[in-house]
Design a protein around this nucleic acid. Structure first.
Length: 626
DNA sequence: ATAGGAAATG
């Protein structure tokens, strides 16, 4: 009789008082057990252990249950051991559990109580824990060595671990086992397989093969594949697959929407993004926290930061990711003061900023010239929040000083940094040198940078721009020759524009479009009109060694101008034009776009590699420093 | 007992 009412007491005591209670109750439990028969004793202690494990959360209580298990002689009870392993929620506890379970059997025959369930539990615990994926695979191998046959539950865990490690050969060999054991048609296994291949660097094609060969598919299958394309920067294919999914008639869920939204964000396709939002509403897809965050990020990065802000304000629950998305969004649009005050509001509300949030607020300061505020937040990181600044934060600070024209301070800052500067930092300084006329310094640093990172194109472009400003054409030509000698190809600049549910991409001198004749006529007309309004071409940045008139011609064929001409031809007067560039906007295009916005009375929103430019009536929101 | 998703210095 006693055994039944002792049960709840143990449970409640464990929950409220932790360790000390367990030890005392252990003794009293043992005293009870002595009066009972062997079998019922076993059963009761098994139940006790399982129940204790059920409410066990810390490593300390786990170690105490461990000694209890030993005392009660349950160390070969698979049920108890499995529960013990599944209780482990972090690396320390799963490590503790697995070494206890598998200890001392290494050289002997494996005990008969090892079963697939026990291994699965250990593999799962490791696969779900950060930085311990290889341990998951270690136990999978142990399982095979011991002759314990994996079941269909084993592989999703194993494949998840492979995905975390990312080796293709590893993945392929596990894939082989899956096929051999006949689990390849299991939907869970197949979906994780797709995800695993997507996570192997550059192996989305393997995932696609599994995807195409799958006899069944559900929203998880499609989300895995769409997410895989999105993460590898193949956003067009991600969106295409989403459309295909609808044709096939598989219903997307909120995770599918997050995946396709991240592709849409990358494309900068605002119209598509709006459509996706309305689709979510129409299909009554749950607006989970993650989905709201994805929507906010999409609106901010597709150019409508006000809409992002509205959604953010309407959210009932927010995480640091939600805050960071809007702060970054405001920063990208050059609305630094708003970003900073939102950051303050976040801190006031008791949300602790993390290192990513600091990158956001620091880059907001940097893009809006808020030097003092930048210093303030940088200094508060470690002092008030215990976050040690990383290279990204130092990068923001160097950029902040550089953009503000404080080249000397930026260099000093780098010299006093406790960590090694990276190439991004040097490039910030070189850009500032170029802008502020510190051309000698810029040249020196550029040359050093080219030495240390000879295959990075932008290092040559920076040096070349400095020579152009120095009017040293022969040296500029030499830079071009150096690039040719190394067989380097310039990353072609491209501009995308969304029109009538399609994305159009232009590269410089592009003639692939049906309308190209009209587009080039429009480009010429634009050139004439803006010249009349006062535009002077900036030819010094053309990297090619050609004469002035041809340079001007080359500038006119920049992808950005082609896209704008295309938009002027195909959209209604007065409507805004939105374009997305893969590189930073060049000086000449920036100047020309200002004139175009005025002459044609259009708001032109340009997203370049780093930020947004809102052109209106001859002015740009970046105030000409970007 | 099993699978897919959100923010990041230029």
């Amino acid at each position: 009789m006693k055994k039944f009412n002792s049960f709840p007491i143990i449970k409640t005591n464990l929950l409220s008082h932790h360790s000390i209670t367990i030890t005392t109750l252990t003794l009293s439990n043992e005293q009870q057990q002595q009066q009972q028969t062997q079998t019922s004793k076993q059963r009761v202690s098994e139940q006790t252990c399982l129940s204790l494990l059920h409410s066990c959360t810390t490593l300390t209580s786990l170690t105490q249950i461990h000694s209890l298990i030993l005392k009660l002689g349950l160390h070969q009870n698979p049920l108890v051991l499995t529960k013990f392993a599944s209780t482990s929620s972090n690396f320390n506890s799963i490590h503790y559990a697995s070494s206890f379970i598998f200890h001392s059997h290494h050289n002997a025959d494996p005990p008969s109580f090892y079963d697939a369930f026990l291994f699965n539990t250990v593999i799962r615990a490791y696969a779900q824990t950060l930085h311990s994926k290889s341990m998951a695979l270690h136990f999978y191998k142990t399982m095979l060595c011991y002759g314990v046959l994996p079941n269909k539950f084993t592989y999703p865990f194993v494949l998840k671990a492979c995905a975390g490690i990312g080796g293709l050969n590893l993945g392929k060999s596990v894939h082989g086992f899956v096929v051999k054991l006949g689990f390849e048609d299991d939907l869970h296994v197949q979906n994780t397989m797709i995800h695993m291949y997507c996570c192997c660097e550059g192996e989305v094609e393997f995932a696609r093969k599994v995807f195409d060969g799958s006899p069944k598919s559900d929203s998880v299958t499609w989300s895995a594949m769409i997410g895989g394309y999105a993460r590898s920067g193949r956003s067009t294919e991600a969106v295409g697959l989403f459309r295909e999914m609808q044709v096939v008639g598989v219903c997307p869920d909120e995770i599918t929407m997050v995946s396709v939204l991240s592709a849409c964000t990358d494309l900068g396709a605002l119209e598509l993004g709006k459509w996706l939002e309305s689709y979510v509403d129409r299909m009554k897809i749950t607006k989970s926290l993650e989905l709201c965050n994805a929507l906010i990020d999409m609106f901010a990065k597709c150019g409508d930061v006000d809409k992002a802000m509205k959604l953010f304000r309407r959210m009932s629950m927010r995480t640091i990711v939600s805050w960071t998305s809007v702060i970054d969004g405001l920063a990208m649009h050059g609305r630094g003061l708003e970003a900073v005050s939102l950051f303050d509001e976040m801190v006031e509300q008791g949300v602790a900023p993390d290192d990513v949030a600091f990158i956001g607020v620091l880059s907001a300061c940097s893009h809006s010239g808020l030097v003092d505020k930048g210093h303030y937040y940088f200094n508060s990181m470690e002092k008030n929040f215990g976050i040690v600044p990383k290279i990204e934060h130092y990068g923001c600070m160097v950029d902040l000083l550089s953009r503000a024209g404080l080249v000397k301070e930026a260099v000093e800052f780098v010299q006093n940094m406790p960590i090694e500067p990276n190439q991004i930092i040097w490039r910030s300084i070189i850009t500032a040198c170029h802008a502020r006329g510190e051309l000698k310094l810029g040249e020196t640093i550029s040359k050093e940078l080219i030495k240390s990172e000879p295959m990075h194109e932008s290092n040559y472009v920076l040096l070349s721009n400095i020579y152009a400003k120095l009017l040293r054409w022969e040296k500029k030509t030499k830079v071009r020759e150096m690039m040719d000698m190394k067989g380097m190809k310039k990353v072609p600049g491209s501009t995308m524009i969304e029109l009538n549910n399609e994305m159009y991409e232009f590269v410089a001198g592009d003639k692939s479009h049906d309308q190209y004749k009209e587009i080039y006529e429009m480009v010429d007309e634009m050139g004439r009109e803006i010249k009349r309004a006062g535009y002077v071409p900036t030819t010094s940045q053309v990297l090619l060694d050609i004469d002035e008139e041809d340079k001007e011609d080359a500038l006119h064929r920049h992808s950005e101008k082609l896209a704008i001409a295309f938009a002027l031809l195909n959209t209604n007067p007065g409507t805004p034009i939105r374009i997305v560039k893969n590189l930073r906007v060049c000086e000449d295009c920036h100047s020309a776009t200002k004139f175009i916005s005025k002459v044609y009375n259009r708001e032109i929103v340009v997203r370049d590699r780093n930020r947004f430019h809102h052109f209106n009536n001859g002015l740009c929101s970046c105030r000409d420093f970007w």
